[in-house]
Nucleic acid binder design. Structure first.
Lengths: 297, 297
DNA sequence: GTTATATTTCTGTCTAGGACAAATAACCAC
DNA sequence: GTGGTTATTTGTCCTAGACAGAAATATAAC
C-alpha cells in the first residue's frame, strides 16, 4: 500500500500522468484511503512497471492500455527476447545467482575478456535483461539496483584505472536526461577512453547554457551528450543546434542516446546511435593516433 | 525564462510547493507566458535558491518570506560564516580559482594531508561553502556541480583504493533521501573504511522493506542509513524502528544525517550526528581491532 | 526547572476536472 | 520514397479548496 508520490518516484512517471491515465484509460485504479487519497497495491506497481517498460520500448499508452495485463506481459516478453538474444548463462546470472557470487562472476568476466568485450557482451545485455527483464516477476528491486550499481562502480573504476597519454583528446561527457540512464553515458565514456581519449564525466544535471563556458574552461576537444528515450526528439535537436552555435568551432559535439534513433543529419554534430560506432567516430574526429593505451598495474 | 518544472527540478522544490508559496506569500511571482503558464526569470531562480538554503539551515518558510530579499541574503551570509569559519584559502579555492588549477589543488591537499584531514578540513567546509556559499552570486551552477562531482569521484577512488583485511566488519551504506546528499554518506563510508571496515555503498534509492533481505544476503555486519535535513524526523524514526525489527539482531544499525540532530535514543540504533564520532562508533561496535589498514601503491 | 501532554499554527501534498501545446501518426501530393 | 498538411494522442499546466502531519507554543505535572 503506497501513495501516489512513492509510486511516481519508483516508476519514474509523473503524478499528473498517473492521474490522467486513471481518468482516461481507467487503468491504475487505486483504492482510496480514509481521506480519499489514492493508495496503490504492490500488484498495481508491478503492472505499471510493465507498462512503463513497454513505453520505453516505443509502445504508446493508448495501445498499451487497450491490452489486458496478460497480453501486456506477453508482448513485453516477446519484445525483450527479440532484442536481447537470450544468453542462458547471462540469464542465470541476472535472475538467480546469489549476489555475492554474481559480484565475483562479473569481476571475473571483466578481467578475462577485457573492458571492450565486457561492455558489449556482458554489461549491455545484462542491463537490458534487468531493465526489461524482471517481467518474470522474480527479481527484487534491491537486486535490480544492486546489479546496476555494481556495474556502474566497476566501469568507473576502469575509467580511473586506465592511464591515457598527456596529449590525448579531451572529451567531456554530460548527462541531460535527469538522473536515470547514467550507465549509457558511462559506457560511452569508457569506450572512448579505450580508444585513447581522456574522458571526463560529469554526473550532475547541468543547465544547457552552462555547458559551453564549462567546456571552454576545461579546454575540452569535444563534448558528448546523451539523450534518453524519454527525451522528446525535437527538443533534443533544438538544444543540440543551440549548443553547437554557442560552442567554438574547434570543440566537436557528439550526441547519442535512443532519443536520436532516427539518423537525422545536423551540421557539425556527430551522431552516435550505437556504442559500436565509437571507434569510427574517434578516428573521424581525431585521426588514427595512438590507439593502444597503457594500463596501470 | 524557465517554466515551473525546470525551476522545480533545479531547486529541488515541488511544483505544488512553488504554487502554494505564490498563493500564500506572494513571493515567487512569475510572469505568465501567452498560455497563462508561469515563467520565471533567472533572478527569481537565484532568489529562491537563497530561500531554499535558508530552509535547509532550519529556517521556516513563513519567517523567510517575511523578510525582504536583501535581508534574506544577509541572514544567509551570517548563518554561513557562523557555521563554516571562513578559511580564506579555501574561500579563494571555491570562488575564484580556475577549475583546472582547482582540481590540482584538491588532489594536492588529499595526497599531502591524507584522507581523514582532507574530509574534515577540506571537503566538508568546501561543500558547505558551495552549498550555501554562492550567495555572493559569483559561482555558476556549472562550477558548483563540477566541484561536488570532483570531490565525489575523489572519495570514491579512495574508497576503492584502500585495501581492507578479509575479516574486517562489513558495512552497507544506503541513501534513503532521494538523489541529493549523496556526499554525506560517501564521506561516512570513507571514514569508516579508514577505521578498518569494509564499506559498501549503494547509491540507488531502495524501498525500505528491501533493505533487510539485502543486508542478510550480503552478510553485512551493519547497515548505515543517512537522512537528509529535508526528511521529516518522525518518519525517519518510525522507519528506523521498523527496520531494526526486521533486521536480525547481529546486524547493527547506524543512522546519521541532519534529520536526526536531536539526540533521541532509539533502542538498538546507533546515532551518528557528526562525522567526528565515527572512530568511537567503530570501537563501540566492533571493539578495538586492527586500526591501521594498508594502502595499495 | 524540567519533562510530558494538549492545543494551535504552519506547511506541504492531495483532490477534481478542465484546458491546451507539443509530440506523434495518418494522410496526401509530388 | 520525401516533404508538408491535418488529425489524434498524450503529458503537463491551470485553479482553488481541503486537510494531515510536523513544528511551535501553551498548559499541566512532577
Amino acid at each position: 500500500m503506497i501513495n501516489i508520490q512513492q509510486l511516481s518516484q519508483e516508476l519514474g512517471i509523473g503524478i499528473d500522468t498517473l492521474r490522467v491515465w486513471e481518468r482516461r484509460y481507467g487503468c491504475p485504479k487505486p483504492q482510496r484511503d480514509r481521506h480519499g487519497h489514492r493508495s496503490y497495491t504492490e500488484e498495481q506497481r508491478q503492472e505499471l512497471g510493465i507498462v512503463r517498460k513497454l513505453q520505453d520500448l516505443g509502445e504508446r499508452p493508448g495501445n498499451i492500455f487497450a491490452l489486458s495485463p496478460q497480453q501486456r506481459q506477453r508482448l513485453l516478453e516477446k519484445r525483450v527476447t527479440d532484442r536481447a538474444p537470450a544468453d542462458d548463462d547471462l540469464r542465470q546470472l541476472a535472475l538467480t545467482l546469489p549476489i555475492v557470487e554474481l559480484t565475483i562472476a562479473l569481476r571475473h568476466r571483466l578481467s578475462s575478456s577485457g573492458l571492450y568485450d565486457f561492455i558489449h557482451k556482458t554489461a549491455v545485455p545484462l542491463l537490458h535483461l534487468l531493465g526489461y527483464g524482471w517481467v518474470e516477476g522474480s527479481i527484487s528491486i534491491a537486486r535490480e539496483h544492486f546489479i546496476s550499481d555494481l556495474i556502474e562502480s566497476m566501469l568507473q573504476a576502469e575509467l580511473r584505472r586506465q592511464a591515457v597519454a598527456e596529449e590525448a583528446p579531451h572529451l567531456l561527457f554530460l548527462n541531460l536526461s535527469g538522473e536515470r540512464h547514467r550507465l549509457g553515458l558511462l559506457m560511452a565514456a569508457a569506450l572512448f577512453q579505450l580508444e585513447g581519449c581522456r574522458s571526463r564525466l560529469i554526473q550532475e544535471h547541468l543547465p544547457l547554457n552552462e555547458v559551453a563556458p564549462l567546456a571552454k574552461e576545461l579546454a575540452a576537444d569535444a563534448v558528448a551528450l546523451s539523450f534518453s528515450g524519454q527525451y522528446p526528439e525535437l527538443k533534443a535537436k533544438k538544444e543540440l543546434v543551440e549548443l553547437r552555435r554557442k560552442l567554438p568551432a574547434q570543440i566537436k559535439l557528439i550526441a547519442g542516446g535512443s532519443a536520436l534513433k532516427n539518423k537525422v543529419y545536423l551540421p557539425g554534430i556527430l551522431l552516435c546511435s550505437d556504442l559500436h560506432q565509437i571507434p569510427d567516430i574517434r578516428k573521424h574526429l581525431f585521426g588514427a593516433a595512438q590507439q593502444g593505451q597503457k594500463e596501470q598495474p
